[in-house]
Amino acid sequence: MSEVLVLIDALEGKVTKPSLELLTIARRIGEPSAVVFGDADTGVLSEYGAEKIYTFDDAAYSEFLVAPKADGVTQLVKDKNPAAVLVPSTTEGKEVAARVALRTESGLITDAVDVTVDGGTITTTQSVFAGNFTVAAQVTKGTPIIAVKPNSAAPEQAAGAGAVEAVSAEVAESSKTAKITSNKPKETSGRPELTEAAIVVSGGRGTGGDFSDVEALADALGAAVGASRAAVDSGWYPHTFQVGQTGKTVSPQLYIANGISGAIQHRAGMQTSKTIVAVNKDEEAPIFELVDFGVVGDLKQVLPQATEEIKKRKG
């Protein structure tokens, strides 16, 4: 079986859940080879099926934007001739993938939500036009390079050999041009990551700027918190939590929209959620066209009651 390169994303050594999803998807195509820049827990990678683990170690990977990493992945693609390259569909993952694709004359598909293999042909599924269509696509030139969105597969454990191979790749001087001069890690909220969460509870204009009821419901459900553009633009919640066309696209099992009218901007980011619930004062709000269940009412009354009821049921 041929190798499939998987670009691993790790935060302070901890491998992210989407990276494990990529390893699971890679096994549909061939033998996963994890590609690690800097530190990552190699034990977890082999538990999730990595047969090989290529490690790169150079200060340039954290001092400069993506170009040095693209040098490393390009070298691997040329040396190993893999069946495919999978990367997380993040800004960094997509930019590394784009540069590698151009350098190796390979087709690139971004934002895949599923990857299937039939007789060696890899087909991706993408959700496009604000989730109004799905598109099936294939790479027709070079090595298929595919950026896959979080939540596209359930990570499955599968023992892999996990043979670690340190790769020394030359970082071109021309790749050391976009210098990261300061890096301030964000404080974590302790909640699940927005794009990875099974449940998202979000708030909009109707919160009036007070997200405490939204956060309390989210915590009772073990959910991530999201916000509409109106709430973010009003300075009520940070932009990294924005769900919508210019923010995050989420596709959780359950999405609860509170005080969000459901403008196209917002729908673009959440309408592929499996189950949708909304609470809104305005019974004419377009969000109600999307919902499986809706409550016309004041979220300041409805949410605390729901939170209490969940706590009671959970005992």
Partner: peptide
Amino acid sequence: AWTKVESYTPRPPRTAGEIVTD
């Protein structure tokens, strides 16, 4: 192009959900 779109499918319409008034 280095990629090819094989097909496109409209998202099935969502069936109307239950709406209650608080």
